[in-house]
Design a protein around this nucleic acid. Structure first.
Lengths: 207, 207
DNA sequence: TCTCCGTCATGACATTTGTCACAAAAAATA
DNA sequence: TATTTTTTGTGACAAATGTCATGACGGAGA
């Protein structure tokens, strides 16, 4: 498979090239040191995978990746990084990158390339470990340990949408006073003070 | 590397075994058809990687994975799935699985196993494509379009912790009245009604 | 059957919250 | 210097919120 390597540190480029050339299945067809170069080289060499540092001067890995993907939506781009920077991870995921690897363990790059070649995406473990903290949507509330009824759960979910007592009452066909009573009970059970703390609790305990 | 295969469909087990045995680097040391069996086999065979269907009767792949990871935090578990179910993806990520593959492309499993063995995590492209929708925005609050000052941002962050006006005032060395005025202004700018809606906004617009 | 529990409700009350008008002090700007 | 703007503050007010006492109703279980 044909690979292009992009890294603004030419020493890293050389190291990667040497390591990858040791694998007969991998052919390094071009090496570059900037995002701009990555775009040109991608056009001319048409590689199977583009292996690119994410932190570079000028356009940077993300910018170059975006432009390449705009022209070639099926491009396989694998980002390399020294540190696992939260912001980059999220942007790379949004962009449609095929992976995000830590430079350190160089011997892991060849297997990663093969996995990408076979249609998967590969992420360094440090990267994956950060993902759960980014996810907050979906999933039910974790109310184990507390004794919360269905009705009460419904109230909690409405509070977490930002509804006031009147709106919750209308929505659930209850009187406003009943909603207030439920809420008072919920707050006591969860050891919270007010509806805002309940909303905070909700969003911090979703999985 | 030593692999255990778990799938409640014994035909799939057989197919996977055949495919993986074709690779000399892979040794299938055990095969099972339930989550309970996975736990026993993991203990007895001590594999490098556990390849397991996520949808099974009884304990299920997630339950078995949780129990195994509790005993062996360094266990490498790779989930297989027929469909990419959102809830499973999120739970698998939280659990600390090393990957999540679609069963369909069977030839991709061996490369994935090698990437996992070398310390990466591997996800099918259909899975990765769903991730961005689970993440919201960047680290800080996305206040573009609104004109929110530093002071106001500080108030917002305190509200999002569940503090009341008095507590915010004490924390920022302001009078309670001032905090109320700021909050009133913030709510107007963000077109929200009360502090609970502000907290909800905060948690839905950050990552 | 009786009791307990969850659901639903009302009224009263104190507190918190959000809004508004107004203004002093400090900082930035002309 | 004169002027705006920003930051901070007060007091008053209505509405929303949270708590409490109290009770009705129905179902599940002892």
């Amino acid at each position: 498979m044909k690979i292009i390597i992009i890294d603004d540190d030419s020493f890293i480029c050389a190291s990667l090239t040497t390591i990858l050339r040791a694998d007969p299945a991998i052919e390094v067809v071009a090496v570059g040191t900037s995002g701009e170069e990555a775009i040109d080289l991608y056009e001319s060499a048409q590689p199977d995978i583009l292996l690119m540092d994410i932190q570079m001067d000028g356009l940077g890995g993300l910018g170059a990746g975006e432009q390449i993907l705009r022209r070639h939506p099926k491009a396989r781009i694998l980002f390399l990084t020294t540190f696992s920077d939260n912001e980059y991870i999220v942007k790379a995921l949004h962009m449609g990158a095929k992976g995000y690897l830590i430079k350190q363990n160089a011997e892991a790059i060849a297997p990663a390339l093969k996995a990408v070649m076979s249609g998967q995406s590969v992420f360094g473990d440090e990267i994956v470990a950060k993902l759960p903290s980014f996810l907050s949507r979906q999933g039910k509330l974790n109310l184990s340990g507390y004794n919360i009824s269905d009705r009460e759960t419904a109230i909690i979910e409405h509070v977490a949408k930002g509804l006031n007592n009147k709106e919750i009452a209308d929505s659930l066909y209850l009187s406003e006073g009943t909603v207030r009573n439920y809420l008072s009970l919920i707050l006591e059970k969860l050891e919270l003070r007010d509806r805002t703390q309940l909303a905070v609790f909700y969003y911090q305990n979703r999985l």
